[in-house]
């Protein structure tokens, strides 16, 4: 069932050029370490799916890993813009990227359909907005019972979904708690899954409100303590708000960005 791998082995095995890769984590439990490993391994032409592309997405885009971004809100929460995303969209740097943009409810329901084994999900949304007019994977459908018009969104089934969790056991059963976002849906919708964890423990302790991902839906677990920083893991770490604020200056300038990535992300490959 689940393989317990080193993070570099897991990314090498599970993430391929051209894949649709979902990196989920709604402010909390963002899989930064896995994103950095994807950058170090130089993956290209990825379709990156993420409700809230934030710093890790900015880094993947700025380092040229992403061909297409599927998203619903792309910003640095409480701080401002994602400058690498903006540079890609406004100036095609380092290369042009394609975007498919949704609302949170719309993209969340794409995962729900994918996790449910259905071709699409329905919601009340998009009507009258510019999103309805321009976006693929959204269409209006009639309720077969009442004729009422609602929006349909196509299922999203990523080649690989990557999430970060607090704990896994040695069999690869995973437990995450706190804000759990859309991670369960992203994992159940995916063909392959990688979960990075703060720690591998002998036994998972049942926790009210926690999400459990049993080993039979987890392809690989990689231990990555602190692997969600500057995001946070409830029970393990606090969100590094100061780093989110400092990213604005780091990412604004291409050279500063590249130097930072070289020193803080790529250097990890050279020292291994």
């Amino acid at each position: 069932m689940t393989e317990l791998l080193r993070l570099d082995e897991a990314v090498e095995t599970l993430v391929h050029d051209g894949d649709c890769v979902a990196l989920e984590g709604f402010t909390h439990l963002i899989p930064f370490a896995a994103g950095h490993e994807i950058i170090r391994q130089g993956r290209r032409d990825l379709t990156l799916a993420r409700l809230t592309p934030d710093i890790v997405s900015d880094q993947l885009i700025g380092m040229g890993c992403v061909r297409k971004l599927v998203f619903s809100w792309g910003g640095n929460p409480g701080v401002g813009s994602l400058h690498r995303l903006r540079d890609a969209l406004e100036h095609s740097w380092p290369h042009p990227i394609e975007i498919e943009e949704h609302s949170h409810a719309g993209l969340a329901n794409r995962y729900v359909a994918g996790a449910s084994g259905l071709p699409f999900a329905i919601l009340r949304g998009y009507a009258g907005t510019g999103l309805a007019a321009g976006v693929t994977n959204v269409a209006e459908v009639a309720c077969p019972f009442t004729g009422e018009r609602v929006s349909a969104v196509a299922a999203l089934n990523p080649d690989v979904s990557i999430v970060h969790a607090q704990q896994a056991d040695h069999e690869g059963n995973v437990q995450l708690w706190g804000i759990t976002g859309v991670q369960k849906e992203a994992v159940l919708a995916a063909r392959r899954t990688l979960v990075t964890v703060e720690e591998v423990v002998d036994a998972l302790e049942p926790r009210p409100g926690a999400t459990v991902l049993p080993s039979f839906v987890v392809t690989a677990v990689a231990e990555a303590p602190g692997g969600t920083r500057p995001s946070y893991a409830t029970g393990y770490s606090e969100r590094d708000d100061a780093f989110y604020a400092s990213w604005d200056a780091i990412s604004r300038d291409r050279r500063t960005f590249l130097d930072w990535m070289d020193a803080h992300v790529l250097a990890g490959a050279r020292t291994r």
């Binding site: 910003g75 969209l89 406004e90 919601l123 999103l131």
Partner: peptide, 16 residues
């Protein structure tokens, strides 16, 4: 939309 002068974060939860 195709060639924005300023790209903003997008919809998020607002439409719904």
């Amino acid at each position: 939309y195709a060639s924005p002068s300023v790209r903003l974060p997008g919809a998020g939860g607002a439409p719904e």
